[in-house]
Write a protein that binds this DNA or RNA. Structure first.
Length: 886
DNA sequence: GGTTTGCATGGAT
DNA sequence: TATCCATGCAAAC
C-alpha cells in the first residue's frame, strides 16, 4: 500500500521516496510510514529520534542510567517505560527490574500527545501517576482522557450511563474517564462532542503519524505531565475518523492512535512489521533475546495489562494463532487474554464469565449492569455481537459476555477449550479466537514460567477436531465427564485450573473427551460396591436387595455381543494377560477382572489359557467401538504398561467409549441403561430410567417399591445418624467398641453378619419386579433389621455430611455427585406432584471377585417430606443380590 | 412447562 | 482475609 505522496513521510526530510520506499513506523491508518532510503535507514538503525527529533521536546533522562530518551513521539514510544514514582526509564534498565515492562500498555505518548483542550490540561500529575502506578492498570487505564481508572465503581456510578450505540462511539467511556479525572460534566459533554466530531481524533492522528511529538512541552522533566499542552492539531486538521467506530469499546485505544496497543510496530526496523510474525515469547513483553519486541516489529502482549492478570489469562498465541486471526491482512494483532471455557461458559446459558481484570482492562468500562453491546470478530472474520455486562457481586463485579452461545457453537467449543481475545489494529476490532483443549500448552495453565507455552498450534476453525470426539454437553455427558475427569486429571500433571476451581469441576482435554463420552446410564452400569463391604439386605417383593452404605466403585467394562447360538454374551479383558474372555451377558464384574475370576469357564480361568477370540474376531469386536477406544484397548494389549491406564476410571472411560450412543455394541444397546436387566423388564429401574424419561412414580404413590424405598430411606438415615454419632463417640473414647444397634459396617474391615452377602449365585436373579404407578404388589417383608426405627424428623440434608468417606475416593464421590445432579434434573423435570423417586441401578461386585447388583435408590427429600422443601437429594443404596460370574 | 435473568453461594486462590 | 469466579438457584418471563 504505497502512499500517493512521493516524498518521504518524514516531514523533516521531504526527500523523494524511491520506488520501493523503506517502511517506517506504523501509522494509525494501518499503513506504514514510507520513508526515503536515508530516513528509512536511520529508522532501521533506531536513530530516528536522535536524528530528527533531537531538538524536539520530549527528551528525558532515564531515571536509572541517565540516558537521554525521547519520549515524545510515536517512534520512541516503546523505548522507555514510565515509572510509578515518576520519570521514565529506558528499556534496558526497565528490563533489569523485577517487572520488566518494555512499555506500559498505555503508552505515555497517549498522554503526552493527546491533544486536549486547554481547559482539560489541568489534569494533575498526581492523578496520572496514581492511575499509572496502582492496581491493575492496563493501557486503557492510562492517564488519557479516553481512559478511566478501574476499580472506581463509585465514580462509575456517578456518571450517567450514556452510550451512543448507534454511532459506535462509547460516550460513556469518555464520560466515565473524564469523571475519573474529576472533570465536570460540562467538560465531558463538550469533550464527547468533540470526540464525536472527530476533531480530536484528527488532531491526534496528525500528530502521531508524523512521528513527532507534536506537543509543546516544558523542557523540564515531568513538565509534560503538568502541562499537557495540546497542539493546535485539534483545530488544524479534519479528522480521519476511520477508527473508533468499528469497535466502540476500543475507541480509547483507537482514538489515541492505537499506540497503546501494540505500538511495537513503531520500529519495525529489524524485521518486517508483520503482525502475524508474532514472537513466541510474549510472556513478559520482552522477547527471548532480551530485546524489546518493538525491535522486532512484533506485536506484543499488552505487557502492563497482562502483568496484572492471573497467569492463566495470559494470552499464549502462536504464530499460527496470529495468522489465523489476522488472515492475510496487515493488521496488527494484540493478544489480550485468554480463558479456558468452564462448563458454565460453554453451556447453553450463553454467558461467558470474563475475568474481572481482563474485562476491566480490555473491554470498555461500563457503569451499568446492563453493559453494552460488544462487537467481536471471530477468527473467520465473522462478527458477533455480545452483551458485555456485569453483575454486582460481593461489592465487586462479575463481568460476563452474554449471547455467546452461537459463537461458541460456531467455533464448536466446549468446556476446556480456550477462547482468546485479541485486538486487531488498527481497526481496533476485538477478535475472539480459540484453541481446542487438545492444543493447550502442556505446561500448567498456572505455571507462571510458561516456558513451554508454545507447545500447540491450532487456533481454530480450520483445525477443528472431529466434533464427534467432543464430550457431550448434555446432562449425562457432563456428569460422566466429571467422573472421568478424575482420571484425566490424575493421569496428568496438569492441575485443574480454570475449570477446576471446584474440585469436582474438571478440566477436560479433548483427548479425554473422546474417552468421556459416557452417559449417566452407562456410568451407573459400572458401579460396583466398594471392596470388602458387606451389604445389609432388604427384601422387596420377595427379592433381596443388598444395601451398601459406602459409595460404589466402578466396575469393569465389557463388550456385549451375541454368540453363534444367538445368546447374549459379553467379552471382558483380563487385567493381567489382556486376553479377552467370554462371559455370560449377565455377568457383573468388579473393576479388576482377571482370568482367575473366570470361574464359569475353568478352562480359561488361567492367563495361560489361549484366547478364544482370533485377531480378526477381536477386530470385529472392537470395530463398532470408537476407534480411539479401540486403539487404546489394542494398544493396551500390546503394551503391558498401559494396563494401569486401563484401570479404574480409565476402565470407565473405555466403557464409555464403547457404550456411547450409536457406538454401543448391539447387545449392549439392548440393555443400554441397565445391562443386567433383561429386555422388557418392568422393574422400577427400567421403567424409570436415569434419563428421566419414562413413567415416574408419583409422590403419593404407595406401591410397594415406593413404600419400601421410603422406609428404607428413613431407616438408612437413622442408621447413618447413629453411625455418625457413634463414630464421634468412638473417636472420643478411643477404640471403644461400637455399640451399634444396627448391624452395620463401620469400615471396610468391619463386616457384619448378614443374611446375604458374598457368595451370590453366579446367575443373575431377578432384581425387582414391580414398578408401575399403580403397582400394588405387596411387600412380603422388609427384612431390614432397622424396621421401625424411623425418624420422621430426619434431615435429608445430612445425607451428604453423613456419608462416610468412601475408599473408592474421588470416583465414588463424583458418581455420587453425578447422582445428585441427576436427581436435581429429575426434580426439575417433575412438577412436584410427581414422585422424585428414582432408583439408580448400580452394579456392585464383591471385593473378592463375586459380584452383586445393587440399586441406588435415590429419593428426593420431598418424597419423604413433601411439605418441606429440602434442597438436597438423598440416596439410598439398596442392593439386589445378584449373581457373580463364573 | 421451559427458558432467561439476576443474584447468591462457596470453593479456590 | 479478601477477592475472584464457577455455578447454583429462584424469580421472572
Amino acid at each position: 500500500m504505497s502512499s500517493p505522496l512521493k516524498i518521504c513521510f518524514n516531514k523533516e526530510c521531504k526527500e523523494l521516496k524511491s520506488e520501493r520506499p523503506k517502511k517506517g513506523w506504523l501509522l494509525r491508518g494501518g499503513e506504514l510510514a514510507e520513508l526515503c532510503d536515508r530516513c528509512g535507514s536511520i529508522y532501521d538503525e533506531g536513530r530516528f529520534c536522535d536524528t530528527f527529533h533531537l531538538n524536539a521536546s520530549g527528551w528525558r533522562c532515564c531515571e536509572t542510567c541517565g540516558k537521554r530518551v525521547h519520549c515524545g513521539c510515536i517512534i520512541s514510544i516503546n523505548t522507555f517505560t514510565l515509572l510509578d514514582a515518576g520519570g521514565i526509564e529506558c528499556m534496558t534498565c526497565a528490563r533489569k527490574n523485577v517487572v520488566p515492562l518494555p512499555n506500559p500498555s498505555w503508552p505515555p505518548s497517549l498522554f503526552y500527545q493527546t491533544p486536549l483542550p486547554d481547559r482539560l490540561k489541568d489534569l494533575s500529575v498526581k492523578s496520572w501517576t496514581q492511575l499509572a502506578g496502582s492496581g491493575p492498570v492496563p493501557w486503557r487505564q492510562a492517564p488519557s482522557l479516553f481512559n478511566s481508572p478501574i476499580n472506581q465503581p463509585e465514580l462509575h456510578q456517578r456518571v450517567p450511563y450514556d452510550v451512543d450505540l448507534s454511532s459506535g462511539i462509547d460516550r460513556l467511556n469518555v464520560a466515565e474517564r473524564l469523571s475519573a479525572s474529576s472533570l465536570d460534566k460540562k467538560k465531558i459533554e463538550d469533550f464527547s462532542e468533540r470526540l464525536m466530531n472527530g476533531t480530536l481524533k484528527g488532531g491526534s492522528r496528525n500528530t502521531l503519524e508524523n512521528g513527532n511529538a507534536g506537543i509543546k512541552c516544558e523542557e523540564q522533566p515531568g513538565s509534560c505531565r503538568n502541562k499537557a499542552q495540546l497542539s493546535s492539531s485539534l483545530k488544524d486538521e479534519p479528522s480521519t475518523p476511520h477508527f473508533g467506530l468499528a469497535v466502540p469499546y476500543a475507541c480509547p485505544n483507537e482514538i489515541n492512535g492505537q499506540i497503546g496497543v501494540s505500538g511495537t510496530h513503531l520500529r519495525p526496523a529489524l524485521q518486517p512489521p508483520l503482525a502475524k510474525s508474532f514472537h513466541g515469547n510474549v510472556q513478559n513483553g520482552v522477547d527471548s533475546s532480551g530485546e524489546p519486541q518493538i525491535r522486532n516489529g512484533r506485536p506484543r502482549v499488552e505487557a502492563r495489562g497482562r502483568n496484572q492478570l492471573l497467569p492463566r489469562y495470559w494470552p499464549r498465541f502462536t504464530d499460527q494463532d496470529l495468522q489465523h486471526i489476522s488472515g492475510d491482512s496487515n493488521s496488527v494483532i494484540t493478544p489480550l487474554f485468554e480463558k479456558m471455557l468452564s462448563a458454565s461458559d460453554a453451556g447453553r446459558i450463553g454467558r461467558l464469565v470474563l475475568p474481572k481484570k481482563c474485562a476491566e482492562a480490555y473491554f470498555p468500562p461500563i457503569s451499568q449492569p446492563e453493559g453494552l453491546p460488544l462487537k467481536v470478530q471471530d477468527s473467520k472474520g465473522k462478527e458477533w455481537i455480545f452483551q458485555f455486562r456485569f453483575w454486582p457481586n460481593n461489592n465487586s463485579r462479575m463481568y460476563v459476555l452474554e449471547g455467546v452461545t452461537p459463537c461458541i457453537q460456531n467455533m464448536q467449543l466446549q468446556a476446556g477449550d480456550i477462547v482468546t481475545f485479541s485486538r486487531l489494529e488498527p481497526e481496533g476490532k476485538l477478535v475472539m479466537g480459540f484453541r481446542k483443549a487438545s492444543s493447550t500448552p502442556a505446561s500448567d495453565q498456572d505455571n507462571e514460567a510458561h516456558k513451554t507455552h508454545m507447545g500447540y498450534s491450532t487456533n481454530g476453525d480450520a483445525d477443528l477436531a472431529d466434533p464427534s470426539a467432543w464430550a457431550k454437553v448434555d446432562k449425562s455427558g457432563y456428569i460422566a465427564t466429571e467422573a472421568i475427569g478424575v482420571k484425566s486429571s490424575s493421569s496428568r500433571k496438569r492441575k485443574n485450573t480454570t475449570l477446576g476451581s471446584k474440585s469436582k469441576r474438571l478440566k477436560l482435554e479433548s483427548e479425554d473427551l473422546i474417552e468421556l463420552k459416557l452417559t449417566w446410564e452407562e456410568a451407573q452400569g459400572l458401579l460396583r460396591p466398594p471392596p470388602n463391604h458387606v451389604p445389609s439386605v432388604v427384601v422387596i417383593e420377595g427379592y433381596e436387595f443388598e444395601e451398601y452404605e459406602d459409595a460404589p466403585i466402578l466396575g469393569k467394562p465389557t463388550i456385549f455381543t451375541t454368540d453363534n447360538m444367538g445368546e447374549k454374551i459379553q467379552w471382558v479383558q483380563c487385567e493381567d494377560c489382556l486376553k479377552w474372555r467370554k462371559l455370560p451377558a449377565n455377568a457383573l464384574l468388579p473393576s479388576k477382572w482377571t482370568c482367575s475370576d473366570n470361574l464359569g469357564d475353568p478352562e480359561r480361568s488361567l492367563c495361560s489359557a489361549a484366547q478364544e477370540l482370533k485377531a480378526e474376531q477381536l477386530e470385529d469386536l472392537l470395530a463398532p467401538c470408537n476407534s480411539a477406544a479401540s486403539k487404546k484397548l489394542k494398544g493396551a494389549k500390546q503394551e503391558p504398561d498401559n494396563l494401569e491406564a486401563l484401570e479404574g476410571l480409565d476402565t470407565l472411560a473405555n466403557l464409555a467409549i464403547l457404550g456411547e450412543g450409536e457406538a454401543l455394541p448391539s447387545s449392549s444397546q439392548a440393555t443400554t441403561k441397565h445391562p443386567r436387566h433383561r429386555p422388557g423388564c418392568s422393574c422400577i429401574v427400567c421403567i424409570q430410567p436415569p434419563s428421566g424419561k419414562g413413567p415416574k412414580h408419583k409422590q403419593t404413590c404407595e406401591c410397594n417399591v415406593c413404600l419400601t424405598v421410603k422406609r428404607r430411606f428413613q431407616t438408612l438415615m437413622l442408621r447413618r445418624e447413629k453411625k455418625q454419632y457413634e463414630k464421634e463417640e468412638t473417636s472420643r473414647k478411643k477404640q471403644q467398641p461400637q455399640k451399634l444397634i444396627i448391624p452395620d459396617k463401620s469400615g471396610d474391615d468391619d463386616p457384619i453378619p448378614c443374611s446375604k452377602t458374598e457368595n451370590s449365585s453366579p446367575t443373575q436373579k431377578k432384581v425387582v419386579s414391580e414398578g408401575s404407578d399403580d403397582d400394588s404388589n405387596r411387600i412380603k417383608s422388609s427384612t431390614s433389621p432397622f424396621k421401625g426405627q424411623i425418624d420422621l424428623n430426619i434431615q435429608p440434608e445430612r445425607e451428604e455430611e453423613l456419608s462416610p468417606s468412601s475408599d473408592s475416593g474421588n470416583v465414588a464421590r463424583l458418581i455420587q455427585d453425578a447422582t445428585e445432579r441427576y436427581l436435581r434434573q429429575q426434580r426439575l423435570s417433575s412438577s412436584g406432584s410427581h414422585s422424585n423417586l428414582a432408583i439408580n441401578q448400580a452394579l456392585l461386585g464383591g471385593g473378592t471377585g463375586e459380584q452383586q447388583i445393587s440399586n441406588d435408590i435415590i429419593l428426593d427429600s420431598s418424597h419423604q417430606d413433601p411439605d418441606e422443601d429440602h434442597p438436597s437429594t438423598l440416596s439410598i443404596k439398596a442392593s439386589a443380590s445378584v449373581s457373580a460370574t463364573g
